[in-house]
């Protein structure tokens, strides 16, 4: 029991330190919608959206990888458009809608893109998959019937080291067909 209390106290003091450290910086109050839910938080100017999403909101689908906007693993949608959350200041999300992969399934039902990636083997290790699927969602929202070239051009900034891309393109094309039928 004593150990647990000690651990609890240590955690509290750690949090207090973190809080007091936070209090030194400029704080910007922002309200944003995350996966459909309104969230009111304070961020410091230098905080990155990826850190806020992962560390403060506990949504770990977006990954830090290249950290220079090349790979797409940290992709989230801001008002429906893909951005690199690793290089986007968190305050830029004020008043806007953020969608992460965690918010894509509706009422426990996967999005057709998620289904298609499973059916067509559009992923192996899964590290790039949240970014792939979110980017593809924007593509299909804007262009429900893309040609293969259009898929490739749109997805060019999302890197996969497993699949060789063929299965990803197949998955997106299959999802487009399925979504059109509905």
């Amino acid at each position: 029991m004593g150990d647990v209390n000690q651990a609890g106290r240590a955690r509290e003091s750690c949090m207090a330190k973190a809080m007091s450290k936070r209090a030194h910086g400029q704080l910007i109050p922002i309200s944003l919608t995350i996966n459909g839910a309104l969230s009111e938080i304070e961020v410091e100017p230098h905080e990155l959206l990826l850190d806020v999403v992962r560390e403060r909101l506990g949504l770990t689908g977006a990954k830090r990888s290249c950290d220079v906007q090349v790979c797409g693993a940290c992709t989230v949608l801001l008002d429906g458009r893909p951005v690199s959350s690793c290089t986007l200041l968190a305050f830029e999300a004020r008043g806007r809608e953020v969608l992460t992969i965690e918010g894509l399934a509706q009422n426990g039902k996967l999005h057709p893109l998620q289904d298609a990636f499973i059916e067509h083997g559009g992923f192996q290790c899964g590290f790039c998959t949240p970014g792939m699927i979110l980017t593809a969602k924007t593509l299909l929202d804007e262009n429900p019937d893309p040609t293969e070239e259009e898929v490739i051009h749109f997805m060019q900034g999302n890197i996969c080291r497993c699949t060789g891309y063929k299965k990803i393109i197949e998955s997106i094309t299959a999802a487009a067909k399925k979504m059109k039928k509905k």
Binding site: Q69, T75, L78, Q156, G157
Partner: peptide
């Protein structure tokens, strides 16, 4: 412009 960097960079 359509071919600057990638779609996320072009967005921002």
């Amino acid at each position: 412009e359509e071919n600057v960097a990638n779609i996320r960079v072009r967005e921002v």
